[in-house]
Write a protein that binds this DNA or RNA. Sequence first.
RNA 1: GCCGCAGUGGCGGAAUUGGUAGACGCACAGGACUUAAAAUCCUGCGGGCUCAACACCCGUACCGGUUCGAUUCCGGUUUGCGGCACCA
Length: 818
Amino acid sequence: MAKYNHREIENKWRKIWAESPVNIDDGKKPKYYCLDMFPYPSASGLHVGHWRGYVISDVWSRYKLLNGHYIIHPMGWDSFGLPAENYAIKMGTHPAKTTADNVTSIKTQINQISALYDWDLEFSTTDPDFYKWTQWIFVKMFKAGLAYEKEMPINWCPSCKTGLANEEVVNGACERCGSDATKKNLKQWMLKITQYADRLLDDLDKLDWPEKVKKMQADWIGKSYGAEVDFAVAGREEKITVFTTRTDTLYGATFMVLAPEHGLAASLATDDKKAAVEAYIYESSLKSSVDRLQDKEKTGIFTGSYAINPLNGEKLEIWLADYVLADYGTGAIMCVPAHDERDFEFAAKFGLPIVQVIAKDGIEIPDMTEPYCEPNGTVINSGDWNGMESSHLKATAPEMIEKRGLGKKTTNFKLRDWVFSRQRYWGEPIPIIHCPDCGCVPVPEEELPLLLPNVESYEPTGTGESPLAAICDWVNTTCPSCGASAKRETNTMPQWAGSSWYFLRYIDNKNNDVLVDKEKASKYLPVDMYIGGVEHAVLHLLYSRFYTKFLYDIGYVDFEEPFAKLFNQGMITGKNGVKMSKSKGNVVSPDDLVRDYGCDSLRLYELFVGPPELDSEWDDRGIEGVFRFLSKFYNLVLENKDKNVKPTAEMLRVRHKMIFDITQRLNNFSLNTVVSGFMEYNNKMIELSRNGGIDKETLITGVILLAPFAPHIAEELYKELGGSKLTPGSDTKLTPGDISWSVFANSWPVADEALMADNEKEVAIQLNGKTKKIVLMPADISKDDALAAGKEVLGERLSGEIVKEIYVPGRIVNIVVK
RNA sequence: GCCGCAGUGGCGGAAUUGGUAGACGCACAGGACUUAAAAUCCUGCGGGCUCAACACCCGUACCGGUUCGAUUCCGGUUUGCGGCACCA
């Protein structure tokens, strides 16, 4: 028996593919853009978890290649940003150097996967030729009024010493390092992503994305419909505007609460309350956002002032409480304790009145012990609204309020503008010049890129100033507009800046005139399939959608959504679901496995470990199984290639069922069962081979099906089988552009369902739904004959009166007796 | 607290619209080949009952329902994971 020498085979075909790539753009084939979320060049290298995503995308790419597409399958480096910079600081080496070194070593590892990557398209986000356009987009946004400066308290990571976007704060902690985020008052560049909130929400419907991710984005955008209602303040000029989604409960408002930061908070205090109110406002200002989040126990203070319910003229106490968010809605709420949990809790604690305005199960509860929050039921205690259905009223009341001049209907979003400045060195400089006369002036487009100055000291200052601020000869410049001496903006962009649009650049990565040529963009974009981890559900994926919509609006691309289809692969973990990490010491490197079992075996095993969308625990031992499968298939082909066996009906059946099953599972993205399918059909073919051999065409079919998964062995066996014009065993002749030697020159096989059909089916004979025996029956047996056969099998077990007889063709005979 | 996903042998996991539960693989056990080992091949492998086989019974987290038939559908419970978390 021949030995499957994976090392020899894989080295050989790697060399051949390098000389003569099999993925060729002939201008006629439809394109298919399959993209991996690009990695940041980490020093720790790849582990088997990284491999998984890359294998999935490569299998899919090669499948599309066999379906007649030209594949765009690029790879690049997300090399600006905190992880790269932190690593450089730790090593005491400039990030430009560590980043370049890491790219070199990771690229070597990625090449072991033997993916179809087209390295001509490669770039790093740190390449000036690339970030020129990252800066250019910023300038365009500035000119469009989407980038603006604002001083406000933002999320601040004391460990990373930089401001963070809302999206980067997870449970009050820095998404990167896990430190508790604090607030810091800083002048920041902001991107007006909120202007796109509606489109970002509505266009989710167009996307073939996991529902989970779409929902996470929808929740993050957080649109709610309701009304802004004006409440007069008793005895004063001012009015207080509140936002509510439950306009239907307006008659049930029994008090009001303002955030301590509300503009009127202090001035509403009556003389006797002044000291206490000011103390409360001061105390709240000391609380961190984390404290305010975790402190569920409600606090508050009565201002002494009253508001008037615009509908019924009732006097409402105005309170301050820090459970009301200053930066959502108007920073003030009307409180309906009967129908809101938080208001109920507050009313209960401070003894405020509770008025029920929606009947629960048709009744008014005399002493409510818990709020009734469902918006359905008959409206009561609500003047002219009495008797209406609350869900209907909820939808129509905002309009009625507006007509009566009491407020206006409106929508609110949870989404906030994007805090875009980072007080760190390793990022794109924000191309803005601060002129004492002209204000903020963008660096002229023709002067881009604005290079990141190369400096000795790049550690974060922690003061809220970027390290760039210390480089006087860089900071001091002249205003492009008036020529006066001016200063450069010293903050840099977040890591997300480059990744928000990088997928466009692969198409045209050497273009110095435009970020991507319009014709090329129109031909090759958008991305058809995007593969990566779910951790970017609201960060990168939301930002990319925003950037794409902006570039669409200013006419640079002709599509509004960057990623038509999204696939999130599950994580590969160590034992007991523990995330692989250096510190846990449970990282499995692919290098040894490739050496011992080969790239093809590891590719298959990465898929075989479990459903691709779920997390899977890694167990090295399982790779033996796929290696054995490849060895057996290798031998099966070599043993049968010269036998000239004529295909029998059984061989045709196996061949076409194999095509059908593999294709269907692949289309369903059930890649783990594709691999088990190969093993199953391999076992069947081995069985056939033992009974006299197997025909060549069936073997070639198996090889083509296997090619996207295990490309090296597929090429080798295809050649051994004399695929195309090749002479088995001879050296492969390479002519540029001619790939007739390759298994990838084939089309994906098509199953002939007529040839798949079995003559006989295994039918389960059931008595009262319990299987008693399995018998072979002709596939075309009539119902009566099948039932008769079934009864015969059951024989004397069949006592009592038969009440029902069921025949499911080719599957079940079920006799029901009483 | 709210929302989503999941619970199947010793393990990873399979099961078209409800239709033979445990495919495929790992591990394990026994056997063949070998002086021996490795590799390879063959056989077995959910539990109970049984010396064994046949037969029978139980079995897809738990309880209940619909159905001739439920891992699949419905109601309830529970455990684990993920997301959101005072957004009015």
